[in-house]
């Protein structure tokens, strides 16, 4: 039997909001250690890696490892049925053909069950090697969302240039060009407002706005985002999910022809 309970269903809602624009379906690998999802978008340009640790759940039981193929859009619809303060429990039997989402109101006067059919998926699990990155930037997630949104008006891609002066995001297109520079700011009043730049080597990489604007949908999960970059490898855009796990987006860079 598999059972995972979260007092705050809002966390799971936010997780779905953070992946639903990139993934139509994904395999949820459930084991003793927690729930893992790794899936590429349909164009195979980006990869989502989601990890929810078992110890982050309010109750967690997984007797046998399960691989459950789920429709992200269906799951997202079901989670929209949860009240903001509801508790959510995911439940499946061994060799399941479906998974049940159980929403319980805070005063336990309402219990709703939604059963979703699982889908068969042939999905390869890609190994993501440990990489040491030349630049690691931590910044407020709201700021990153804003930069991606604002610069997307100017072009289809954003160039990230990291130097010892700071990080410069720029875009250009038919209307003109724009750039936004951020310098390190560790004196911010609040930790979540800090900009921390750890640069080993300067670099310049270009990424498609379309994907970046999907990644920033994870903003509500965490006040800070971490961007890890090295020449010629995918960008890693990481958001922590409270004390329960993280969501990492990998994005292949663009190159000049």
């Amino acid at each position: 039997m598999f059972e995972a309970r979260l007092v705050q269903s809002a966390i799971l809602k936010k997780v779905l909001d953070a992946v639903k624009d990139l993934l139509t379906e994904a395999t949820f690998e459930c084991s003793d250690s927690g729930i893992q999802v790794q899936a590429m978008d349909s164009a195979h340009v980006s990869l989502v890696s989601l990890n929810l640790r078992s110890d982050g759940f309010d109750k967690y039981r997984c007797d046998r490892n399960l691989s459950m193929g789920m429709s992200i859009s269906c799951m997202s619809k079901i989670l929209r049925c949860a009240g903001a303060e509801d508790t959510v429990t995911l439940r499946a039997w061994d060799n399941p053909e479906s998974i049940t989402f159980i929403f319980e109101s805070p005063n336990k006067d309402k219990l709703a069950e939604y059963e979703m059919k699982l889908i068969n998926m042939d999905q390869e699990h890609l190994g993501i090697p440990e990489t040491s990155y030349s630049c690691v930037i931590k910044m407020p997630s709201g700021e990153f969302s804003r930069i991606c949104r604002d610069l997307s008006q100017f072009g289809e891609s954003i160039t990230f240039a990291c130097s010892k002066e700071g990080i410069k995001f720029s875009a250009s297109g038919d209307y003109g060009s724009a750039n936004i520079k951020l310098v390190q700011n560790t004196d911010a009043d609040k930790e979540e407002e800090a900009v921390v730049i750890d640069m080993q080597e300067p670099l310049k990489l270009t990424f498609a706005c379309r994907y970046l604007n999907c990644f920033v949908k994870a903003g509500p999960l965490c006040n800070q985002v971490q961007l890890s970059m090295s020449d010629d490898v995918p960008l890693v855009c990481e958001y922590k999910i409270g004390d329960i796990g993280h969501i990492k987006y990998y994005l292949a860079p663009k190159i000049d022809d």
């Binding site: 590429m40 164009a43 195979h44 340009v45 980006s46 990869l47 890609l126 190994g127 993501i128 090697p129 990489t131 289809e156 891609s157 270009t206 498609a208 490898v233 995918p234 990998y250 292949a252 860079p253 663009k254 190159i255 000049d256 022809d257």
Partner: peptide, 14 residues
Amino acid sequence: APKQRKMREFFVKW
């Protein structure tokens, strides 16, 4: 315009 690379290239390479 710059060409979009695919994740596949990096998994092979890594």
